[in-house]
Write a protein that binds this DNA or RNA. Structure first.
Lengths: 214, 214
DNA sequence: TAGATTGTTAATCGATTAACAATC
DNA sequence: TAGATTGTTAATCGATTAACAATC
């Protein structure tokens, strides 16, 4: 999945802008300049203006940005106006954590199904959604509109399951398995590799200790 | 926490090299050239060689890289040779998911404590580690060697807890709360913002749909 | 030795920052 | 109007890729 013109570096920053604007909105702040926002967020004002102007001119000279308006517009850009049907494959702790993450629904991510191999979980319900057995997955996906599949299963099953999902129409995968999925170009994959994040942390600890001759 | 000279862009790629080399090792592959590795990993051979040469010359002209040796060296760079004592604050699904993630121990991340506010979890044990109540946290941290604290608590408590941890000697935080922690420069923070990851996925879906006039 | 492949320098590309004219 | 702040162009900085001499 390659991209039109806007770099993923910019995209990765949008949710953070969105979060800060949401907080400002809650705090009753009506408008904000790129300069004030830049101080809060620890980025340059220039970067904020450059990033936003990839999508249009949301501000007004001499005034700044209307918080509510900008918040809404970034939400639109991020696709949070539309609903997304999501299923979770793997009802282990991580899968359940995602399933219970209530804030999802607020943003239009609607939990449609949870799947696992463990028969003891059959019929257990999370936020009103029953855990189904894996052998139902194929027909479920084929017969329901599924926008996003979150994969919280062991890495040795991930590729196989992902292929099957894609075969049956799923076009976006949120991948928590420790593997790089090999999928057609028209499938969008977002990886969350927790162990890699932890290793990056570990690296930075080592570097710090070295510098300070622990 | 700023960095010596090696960019975080490079650091972020190291765990991925490490993963691929681990797989090659398991597969019994003895040596590999930057070119072959680049094809497997979908990066340029040039980038691999540049990245590695930030840390030293691990290869040999005409031969390539010894898989076992390179794997070990990257492990050292990432600090996986030393043990890291880790505690988890917040024993919800996400906290439990991390606690149960057995592969951590293999990499030298040793679970020393789990904390939660919920009295119903008091004394419950995960992988031999009892869940303790939050009011014990301060003295636990003060009296035990804690290298990393994983924060899997709601965002409104995160800042306060993080401050307390740092006050009591914790120098590295793996932050899952949806907030940017404001901590001294000598504290290392690694953020995992799942909602931002999901929004990035959502953005890419929207973009794809637009391009194909859904 | 000839062939292969690294380590490293140089060239290119992209992203960030600075500057400022436009304009509210 | 004067002041403030954007949108946008230009300058800088950093990261990636290409090229190739060194060398195993």
């Amino acid at each position: 999945m390659e991209d039109r013109g806007i770099s993923q570096a910019v995209i990765r920053r949008l949710p953070r802008y969105y979060r800060y604007l949401g907080e400002l909105l809650e705090g009753g702040v009506e408008r904000i300049s790129s300069n004030d926002l830049s101080k809060r967020m620890n980025v340059t004002a220039s970067q904020i203006r450059q990033d936003l102007n990839n999508f249009g001119g949301f501000g007004q000279q001499g005034y700044g940005y209307n918080v509510k308006y900008l918040y809404t517009e970034i939400g639109k850009i991020l696709g949070l106006e539309e609903d997304h049907n999501i299923i979770i494959i793997g009802a282990g702790n991580l899968g359940q954590a995602l399933a219970n993450y209530a804030a999802f629904e607020k943003r239009g991510f609607i939990l449609k199904g949870i799947f696992d191999v463990n028969p003891r979980l059959a019929g257990v319900t999370i936020r009103g959604v029953p855990i189904r057995m894996m052998d139902e997955l194929r027909s479920f996906v084929a017969n329901n509109e599924v926008d996003i599949a979150a994969l919280t299963i062991p890495k040795d099953k991930a590729e196989e399951v992902a292929d099957m999902l894609v075969e049956n129409g799923v076009r976006a995968i949120w991948n928590f398995a420790h593997i790089d999925l090999n999928l057609p170009d028209n499938v969008i994959v977002e990886n969350v590799h927790l162990s890699e994040s932890l290793m990056q942390l570990s690296y930075n600890i080592s570097r710090y200790n070295e510098e300070h001759q622990k």
